[in-house]
Design a protein around this nucleic acid. Sequence first.
RNA 1: UGGGGCGUAGCCAAGUGGUAAGGCACCGGGUUUUGGUCCCGGCACCCGCAGGUUCGAAUCCUGCCGCCCCAACCA
Length: 565
Amino acid sequence: MNEERRGPGLDFIRAIVEEDIRTNKWDGRVVTRFPPEPNGYLHIGHAKAISVDFGIAQEYGGVCHLRMDDTNPSTEEEEYVESITEDVRWLGYDWGEHLYYASDYFEQMYAWAVQLIKAEKAYVCDLSADEFRDYRGTVTQPGKESPYRNRSVEENLELFERMRAGEFDDGARTLRAKIDMASPNMLLRDPVMYRILKASHHRSGDKWCIYPTYDWAHGLEDSIEKVTHSLCSLEFEVHRPLYDWFLDQLGVYHPQQIEFARLNLTYTVLSKRKLIALVEEGHVHGWDDPRMPTISGLRRRGFTPESIRDFCRRIGLAKADGVNEVGQLEHCLREDLNKRAPRVMAVLRPLRVVIENYPEDLVEEMDAVNNPEDPGAGTRKVPFSRVLYIEQEDFMEDPPKKFYRLAPGREVRLRYGYFITCKDVVKDDDGNVVELRCTYDPETRGGDNPPDGRKVKATLHWVSAAHALEAEVRLYDHLFTKENPMVLEEGDDWRNYLNPNSLEVLGSCWVEPSLAGAVPGTQYQFERLGYFCVDPVSTPDRLVFNRTVTLRDTWARIQKQHRSK
RNA sequence: UGGGGCGUAGCCAAGUGGUAAGGCACCGGGUUUUGGUCCCGGCACCCGCAGGUUCGAAUCCUGCCGCCCCAACCA
């Protein structure tokens, strides 16, 4: 994996890691970790974090742990653990033996909590959640100390033990750190370390009824695993003093936490809450809907792990939060697919073409190049006959300037076929163009220029009507019509910006016969249209393709410019 | 508002006292049997703003402005 090359100037985290290696701060070790909570599917934002965590470890000869941060049994499930491991592996990363679970550390965390109680740094508090909120104060006013703050060590020990034993109801008591109710940092106002939660855990079952909070657990997990560089997103910057406090009070191994800006993408949402809403409210057809920014959605859409990694590398790593353009992701995708996707011809919106001077029962096998970017990909045969389909948008009866495709009287090339000239237009009763009557020039076989040196301005793709396979093609567009659906006026809802045209299903498309038996997951370039991949629901009898991304389309841009003028 | 961060082109992002890398987008031109790819060229007299220090500042100092995060027994 050498595509993770870096340009001039290391990002600030790699600079720190290199400096630490140079000064031997961690005995030359580099240990990072990716710590997802198994309560949802991974998305492109996680891909950035994964490429940072695993990428840095890999580049500096270290290791990266995959750790399930499963401290809240009420939302976590085994299903998510499986999807997470699958997605990380698919992205191309390997944690070796280092798959861990926070829940495996519960006993150690409990012992450390007892240690803090004994040191008079933690206490059992009987305040309810509401009371807790009242006592905490606000961002501008200091909080009040809990009336239970000064219980004796013995009483705290006994109560904490009884909490563990299940003697109290959910929410009845908590274990809190005794820090400073007047701290300007809200997180330091005696944060909760344990809450009572009588719920079955996906791994530890009913062994526990008290669970550590994230703030208490997270730093300990990193410490237990001897992580050197604990990389996380910006919002945890204010938590760092808390983690430092716990680790220092305990006197245990102390990793260094470094925060960076998480990924945001235009025309989509990346918050777990909104992603869940999209699925549950039926705006998409599941977590792996090809419109979803989830790893599974991108995979089904036809993205390659290489293109996602390349994207993550190119957007850089810094502390300024911003929004990256999906266009950049799409660029990385096209660049990758251009090199590897075999070319085929497919007609999405067919227009019948009859070549009047072509023999009725003749079928010629034309040679077609599989991939002009890869000579090793070879060639294939494509049948040509008297009746063909071309794309409806490749013909205009009254073409505007700069439209140089087919029109009455005009000659174009059929790729790998022949030059044809449009002689007549057949319409139905409503005036719709339903068929083109054309002639071909036998001297242009294979699409070659004729001996007289005649040139044409356009080359069209086509399929032979009698040989083509019918297929369903699903066209996707951005899920949202608004560049940043998160930025809203007061009272507005992000759902108002769902793109009603994010999915268009074309039921009767025609693809060239070489696509018979195409295997789900395989990517192709449909010439002049875009990159498409075979959907998992596709069968030999009913081929189904997803449009991954269109090709860059200069003609579309010209039309758009004219329309906006 | 108290605290913690961040502000370099339309979007990302290097640069850490010596006179603004790179990518995407965009605009030209060339090649082309994909209006694709590829190639070539253009695109910040200026680094949130205002002062100051210095021979010299995006880089140092001061003040101001803007944006993000923290008031879940979520992570």
